[in-house]
Write a protein that binds this DNA or RNA. Structure first.
Lengths: 349, 349
DNA sequence: CATTAGAATGTTAACGTTAACACAAGTATA
DNA sequence: TATACTTGTGTTAACGTTAACATTCTAATG
């Protein structure tokens, strides 16, 4: 911020009051057309750029919303952010993007700063190591509109827009079951995040409904990335061969990539020896040695819906708190065993 | 922004002046320890969150910087943004992220709004369809610190942090030449962006220095994405077979992906029939049917350097305008012909 | 004991804008 | 012609904070 042209300078230059300048530049009624023209021209000539900071102070409205992302490099998030930004743009808002790096401390700091900058609302996505929701409650109680997206904190009084995680996990697990696989492993992510929990629940549900056993040794914590998937799969592959699963359902695609690598390095084939499926439809899924069958998450749609709900909360104090669940779609490729060298080999849908 | 706790409320509650509250909360000297404690406790109790908007107005400093990204879904940018955000966080700044979708109109609007919100500085990356630099000049003249990253506008008086595009293109072209390929095509991007121009220049330089001919028909505009690469390659493959190139050097990885697809669909082999190389090292490069030889762009480093330079301009009015060029590194995989089924088959470095 | 330096606190104005009201001059209504 | 609206404009105060200066009080100095 430097020595800038102000409305006062325009006013002085023309011998009118600042208020008239304000009115003219904001297209308010009750300004003589001639005066308005003079003012607009002078503003142009002096290179006037209205000071939004002062405006925000008076109007108590910044037209800025805060967005917290846990990890931008997870391929799903750039699409969500893009959708958020574009929807915000359409509604006359800009976004302050902050990155928590999955750390609760960073997230808390970000939220605090955003609140301090008086954003009109916030879009939050819980960091992986968040343990307590107290801070969320505090912020929400203060009246700042908050909507969670993708990873939600329930019971804190904020709306939530998310993928149908449980249903997705159930669908893809059922797909494996229809193939006839009976010993199905789950590479899970059972930290505090609702996402991992829900997917595990969906997995269990599918298994139980088909009366298949949940084998403790075949449910392994894998985190959220390739390395975790690789390590978890290795653990399973260290069991005796009779204990190997026929198929693996993973909490997300990167974990599936790591697992697939581990399987192939052991000289086993995917899907012939062990089938594998993920959730996300990462950009790399179809490029895998055995293209990955997975669940497509409508990232764009999620971003749009989350921002729309936030705007609704901002514009209407009585907007009801909602849990919005977005449906997903299964993407069938080869890693589940549906195709063999490009040919469909069985009727599983 | 809602009915919020202000410093005045704390002051009234305690019977002191607002100024004392301000001093206490900002850890200024000349406040009695007892008073400070009382104030801090009261602030805590009332849930006081300082109003950064008012502070910005007085101090003429928002601790916010504006970032314009042309297209977040290009895999390179999320890493750049992450680096920018983290570096900004370390320096006590937040970023307003705006997306131009490669449109000059959107970019201009974004810059205008950012200036209006009085960001302390801006990081710009020219949209593909920018034709005139007049607006950049105007903004820079107004005193707002600006640094360009990746795609630069030269001659407008702003610093620039970019990849060594020309050198990168030359290096990878020379790599093909060392393999003995003589008929080398270039899938180019010759719109207004400096990036495409520079890479073409590097390509030409390498060819000329090795006294290889530049064949007009083998230099085809391809834009920046898979579809463009596919289409451009198809055009070349429609020539008679004698005219086919031995190798293709593309302006970036996505274009190479599209081109590879076109080649393979024609029943030709990569690299045996036509070798191919890219620039970027997209996350998918190593997963291609023939893993792509390419140039790694240090996205993280670029983001960090760009933000650091911007901060230097913000903090020091006399910081010299610089053109900072970051070196790249060649990543050799199979699509250039260096390996055959995982074995190195020739000495080209 | 008067003087003075320093510490703690208060007062005023400013940052750039807009809302709310006030006012003057012109126009329509009774 | 007097009265009431309408139109264009100005004035004052407010938004929440901090800088700069002013004041009060305390404790140390000679």
């Amino acid at each position: 911020m430097s020595r800038r042209v102000t409305a006062k300078m325009i006013a002085d230059e023309l011998g009118v009051s600042v208020m008239t300048v304000s009115r003219a530049l904001n297209n308010r009624p009750n300004v003589d057309e001639k005066t308005r023209e003079l003012i607009v021209n002078m503003a142009q000539k002096l290179g006037y750029i209205p000071n939004h900071v002062a405006k925000s102070l008076v109007l108590k409205k910044t037209h800025t919303i805060g967005v917290v992302v846990p990890e931008i490099s997870i391929s799903f998030f750039p699409d969500v952010i893009k959708a958020i930004e574009e929807t915000a743009y359409g509604a006359g808002y800009q976004i302050i993007l902050t990155h928590s790096s999955e750390s609760m401390e960073r997230e808390t700091y970000a939220i605090q700063t955003l609140a301090s900058k008086r954003v009109d609302g916030m879009l939050l996505c819980t960091a992986a190591d968040v343990k307590s929701y107290e801070f969320y409650k505090q912020i929400i109680r203060s009246g700042l509109p908050v909507v969670f997206y993708d990873r939600c904190a329930f019971g804190v009084g904020a709306s939530c827009v998310r993928i149908n995680d449980e249903q997705s996990a159930e669908t893809i697990t059922n797909h494996l079951i229809k193939h006839g696989y009976k010993k199905i492993a789950h590479l899970a992510s059972l930290n505090s995040l609702s996402v991992g929990q829900s997917r595990f629940t969906g997995f269990k549900k599918a298994m139980q409904e088909s009366h298949l056993p949940l084998i403790d040794d075949l449910i392994v914590e894998a985190g959220f990335d390739e390395a975790g998937g690789y390590k978890a799969m290795l653990q399973i592959l260290n069991y005796s061969r009779e204990e190997y699963p026929n198929a693996v359902m993973t909490v997300n695609d990167p974990v599936a990539f790591g697992a697939m690598q581990a399987i192939l390095e052991r000289g086993l084939r995917v899907p012939e020896d062990i089938a594998i499926v993920g959730i996300v439809d990462d950009i790399r899924a179809e490029l895998m040695p055995s293209p990955l069958t997975t669940i497509r998450q409508p990232a764009h749609d999620l971003g749009v819906r989350a921002l729309q709900k936030l705007l609704a909360h901002i514009e209407n104090k009585n907007e009801p708190v909602e849990d919005i669940v977005i449906d997903t779609e299964i993407v069938i490729r080869e890693s589940c065993g549906c195709f063999n060298r490009g040919k469909k080999i069985d009727g599983a849908s």
